[in-house]
Design a protein around this nucleic acid. Structure first.
Lengths: 228, 228, 228, 228
DNA sequence: TATGAATGAGATTTCATTCAT
DNA sequence: TATGAATGAAATCTCATTCAT
């Protein structure tokens, strides 16, 4: 009389199966991120991604709703990781310079390394409003965190006064641009690059506090049009 | 009115026509650059450019062979100007820090300002090999010039030793990224931005000459895969 | 438990299995009909049908050869029932008006009610020739039966003379269109609707026998291009 | 010195050109309507429409934004014409039976004849919300107009009491279904068909006022889910 | 029997480019 | 020189169907 065999094993998502499927999704995200990094988001075609992930173009849509969703997940994961790193830095008790160095290292790690979803981030313009908005918010939050870090360093006297908004953007630009020239088979490891950039970018903040008439240390305000 | 009134004075060869034609080409280049900057190269359509230049899509092809050529001229002009600026700096007798500041200011000026051909530059990947190669060469030459400037500063004792390749790329990244967040109707003028970025980016080079074991001051070599 | 316990009792040939399988087929047909009715044949996807029938898309193909076959069985059952109803009416001894009312009621019942296979019927165009032809034949036969009923009423003097082909199509159109506006959760029951439509549609046939010069009471001929 | 040659003749729409383009749009609408009628809206492909209109698929998009827009214009024109006919009938001083006959004739004329945009109308479900809503409103308005006509006939004693909503739907169903069986090369002209249907459908309303317990002559209310 | 995954054909749509005038 | 119109290739996406297990 066991007619209704709803014994939880014939629904499309038993535990083992869902795990396998989830693994495939991550593989695909990694592949997509590789293609995005390699060709740029706009030039990356679904065909390219499918080929990189070793499946047919149509089959991509079994796992993701479309290019938008693929790009969104890539970006979202990356920004989430960066936000975590920024928060961890903020909570630490090290000198602010070290906090900032940690954020820089994390940024490059997440941007350049072969993690699932890691994209030369923030090519967001092609996304539909629904998906773009939350990413922009997170991105702005991250930029604010970097600005706050710089402001904290100034307040503590570790850094010289400066236009925190401008400098934060300079730092983020230097970091984001790295994905344009970095080659995985190059001479320098990501760690070495991170070390070098952190040294240079932090050194520009420190030094003997010298009066700067243009300095703007006002509390950071979100500038939504900005691009990290 | 009676100038050059030969039989066929409006064939593409006559002097006046050539002059008018050349002027129209520049207008179109300016329009194209605006669209490239506004939407990104990949998202910019020939229709958009035609509309911005106030002519029909078909007519664009009378002046330019295609999108590639338009993009090429935009980029080429920009890089030429930057190379000039770099050369002028090199030839100057000012302190190296000032030379570098001048290059930075010129870079932002040519990148952000409303000049014909100025594009949020270096979206070169979509170009065919023929057109891409010379641009890459010029771009590398420019990057080398910046590295050489830094190396000169180090040799003269003005700058602390550092990995010149890495730092040059950091600087260029910070500058190029500016076209992503700069808004013509924003609060800061291009000059103010240039001033602020130059201050920060040069300050990271100077400072008390401190021994840096990782420093790499080997003579600059072109790395063709790199992207300025 | 020990019924038919031969060696291989779950091979598709055993009696019990065949019975179970047949039941499953009917469930699926009902589900398919629901989806066809709800979304229209063209918009109904195999995935939708599978979900409605609570099995996987792939498994549908164990029971049916494809969408064509599903649609064919739905339509075929419905038309068969209607033909039966038309035959039963013809064989009855009631007044022709009542015979026609019975056919109308049956038509709506089979079209709107939750019977297996009942589809907002006659979206046949997408079927392959092999399957379409027999359906068209049955459909034409049904249309002929309705025309014959009207003609009988005229011959007996119950109905006024009229163009039987045209009127039959008007009646069938009014009935078939009902599946477009009928909502199962609406105010009127199918029976009430059937009653109301039967009243109206039959009343248009009866009335004082008035001479109609355009009347066409020629023996009904099948018009194969017609759609009931 | 006539530099700014904005003499209104080089903009994409000079009078002559716009007229030519507009003519092409109408041709395409007619072609689309033919295909919609022939194959049903869902089965009609842009390829089919393009072929019928004798241009390449891509070129369709020079004239219309997509399938939705094509369908919308077809439907919209048709419903507009029908609404006009209904209004004209309402305003007339003829007997209500004649008013209704005029509406019926117009309906068939606009549905079956080779007018630009005339579609076997009201396959609206595939349209996006933006375009669907206004059509549904117009459609409901038309249905209300027919119901009002019937109610007026009842009030004046011309028609027997009946469920106006149900009867209006029966009439519209009979009319709409005609596009399924009508063949332009058939024996009967559209006028003849219209005459025959009008006769039958109106005759069912008239007759000696006979008490009908189910009668519903309440003022017509819009039933938005309904489908004319 | 049943499933998740895969596929290939085809649909709509976009767009740089060309053509006739 | 300039235009509206046309085209063909490619992009994204859908979906009935099949396959391995």
């Amino acid at each position: 009389m066991v007619q209704n065999s709803n014994s939880s094993s014939n629904k499309p998502g038993s535990a083992r199966v869902r795990r396998k499927s989830e693994a495939r999704r991550l593989e695909i995200l990694r592949a997509a991120a590789r293609v995005f990094r390699r060709s740029g988001v706009a030039a990356a075609g679904m065909r390219d991604i499918a080929e990189e992930a070793d499946l047919s173009p149509g089959n991509l849509y079994y796992y993701f709703a479309g290019k938008d969703e693929l790009l969104f997940f890539c970006q979202d994961q990356t920004v989430d990781r960066m936000l975590e790193a920024a928060e961890a830095a903020r909570a630490s008790t090290l000198p602010v310079a070290d906090q900032l160095r940690a954020v820089i290292r994390a940024h490059l790690h997440y941007t350049l390394e072969e993690l699932e979803g890691a994209t030369a981030h923030l090519e967001i313009d092609m996304l539909a409003e629904d998906l773009r908005r939350p990413l922009i918010e997170k991105r702005d939050k991250y930029e604010q965190a970097v600005r706050a870090l710089i402001a904290k360093g100034i307040k503590r006297g570790e850094f010289a006064p400066c236009d925190t908004a401008l400098v934060a953007r300079a730092i983020l630009g230097a970091l984001n641009w790295a994905s344009r020239w970095y080659r995985p088979d190059g001479k320098q490891s990501v760690s070495a690059i991170a070390q070098g950039l952190a040294d240079y970018l932090v050194r520009g903040l420190a030094g003997p506090p010298k009066a700067n008439p243009n300095a703007n240390t006002a509390p950071a305000r979100a500038i939504s049009g900005g691009q990290t």
